[in-house]
Computed example of a mutant assay.
Amino acid sequence: MVEIKFNGQRYAYWQQVHIRSSVDDLAASVNLAVTRSGTGERLGVDANTVIEVLIDGAVVTTIRADSISRHVDANSHGIAIEGRSLARELIDSQYSQTLSGLKLEELVKRLCSTFNVPVNVNAKTTLVPDFSLQSESPSNALINAARAANLLLYPTADGGLMLTEPSSAAPVATLRYGEHIESYTVVDEYKLRYSEYLVKGYDYQNDQALKGAAKDSGIGFYRPLHIIADKTGQGLGGSERRAELERNRRQARANRIELNVAGWTHAGGVWAINTQVRVTIPQENVDGVYLIGDLAFTLDDQRGSMTQLSVMKREAFAGE
């Protein structure tokens, strides 16, 4: 059962549910709707209300509403909520800030504190010599900095963010087609890949230009991606590693499996991103451990409660 909790109140029995989170997005998204008999009343939520979203009693995300719509006719009333987790402010806001001499974890904490977004760091981070925002969204700069460090920055149940490495823990479950997996889709997204990757930067300490390159042998035509380095002063080797990381991540991300499984939980609890699962699909010669990169909890009249899992090899996030 999905419930929302705010100001000491609880509302349950939603008829339509879509709750999505991804390791590539800073904010989880929530869509809930219900139609009941009678004229109904306002929900009591405003722009400032913080709402906990629970599945079977466990908080899966904490949001503010982006929009609330009410529809009333002679026999019924309906209400729909769209919202995102608290880190949405890092996505929507345009902000200016210059920081220097901070480790990545300190930088993330500083920006999150400005927007009252909870953050948890579970990784060792290195120095980011210079970090600057000029009337722009903090989210893009934070995601790029995390990727350059081979780390993930993704939404947590309290509405905040986790900065950590891709999980290497044991699989939380084993999913077999025909037993646990109701349907699957194998995706080869070629547009994510490029023939060559060129990372350019400048080492101000040693007063020299930096350049690193990597090629994808699977793309036989000219399709370049040039990247301005997110970090400076890391030397030529750092630029080369960043180019290899970008190539490896895109190769792995371009090949993924989307699974539909019944329910919202496994034996250990509610499904979560950045956890590993063993997937067995004999028809595709698939039998291995994959990382959950995206998930969506859904509920509708046709299929009931389902979880859509997008899984890929850990290298899609770890890079090297």
Rank of each mutant, 00 (worst) to 15 (best):
P138H: 01
T114L: 09
D158Y: 03
P166D: 02
A169N: 14
P138Y: 01
E165Y: 13
A123R: 06
L192K: 11
L163Q: 09
L192H: 04
I181D: 03
N144P: 00
S132M: 14
P138M: 02
L152V: 07
N120W: 08
T114M: 09
V187F: 09
R193S: 03
F115N: 04
L192N: 09
L151D: 01
S139W: 00
A145W: 04
A123G: 11
P166K: 00
T164P: 04
L151Y: 04
E179L: 12
A170K: 13
T126N: 14
A141K: 15
A145E: 09
L161A: 05
R193E: 03
Y177I: 10
A173W: 01
T125P: 08
A149K: 00
Y184N: 07
Y190P: 00
Y184H: 14
L111R: 03
Y190K: 14
P171W: 05
L133T: 05
S135D: 14
V172C: 05
D158N: 15
G160Y: 04
L142H: 10
D188K: 13
T156S: 13
S113H: 13
L151G: 00
I181L: 01
L142N: 05
T114S: 12
Y154E: 05
N140S: 14
D158P: 06
E165F: 11
S137G: 10
D130S: 14
L152Y: 08
A141P: 02
T126D: 14
S195N: 07
P118S: 07
D130N: 14
L111I: 15
G159A: 09
R147L: 04
L153T: 00
T164I: 10
I143V: 14
S137P: 09
R176H: 12
R176Y: 10
V117D: 02
A141M: 09
L163S: 10
L192F: 07
L142P: 08
V119Y: 04
E189H: 11
F131W: 13
G159S: 07
V128F: 05
S183Y: 08
L161Q: 06
N144H: 11
P171F: 02
Y184I: 06
E182C: 08
N116K: 13
S137T: 13
N150T: 11
V187Y: 08
E165N: 10
T125S: 08
A173F: 06
A146N: 10
L127K: 11
A170T: 12
C112Q: 00
L161W: 03
V128P: 00
A148K: 06
E189D: 14
T164C: 13
P171T: 06
C112D: 00
S139E: 05
L163I: 11
S183Q: 10
A170F: 02
E189C: 00
L163A: 11
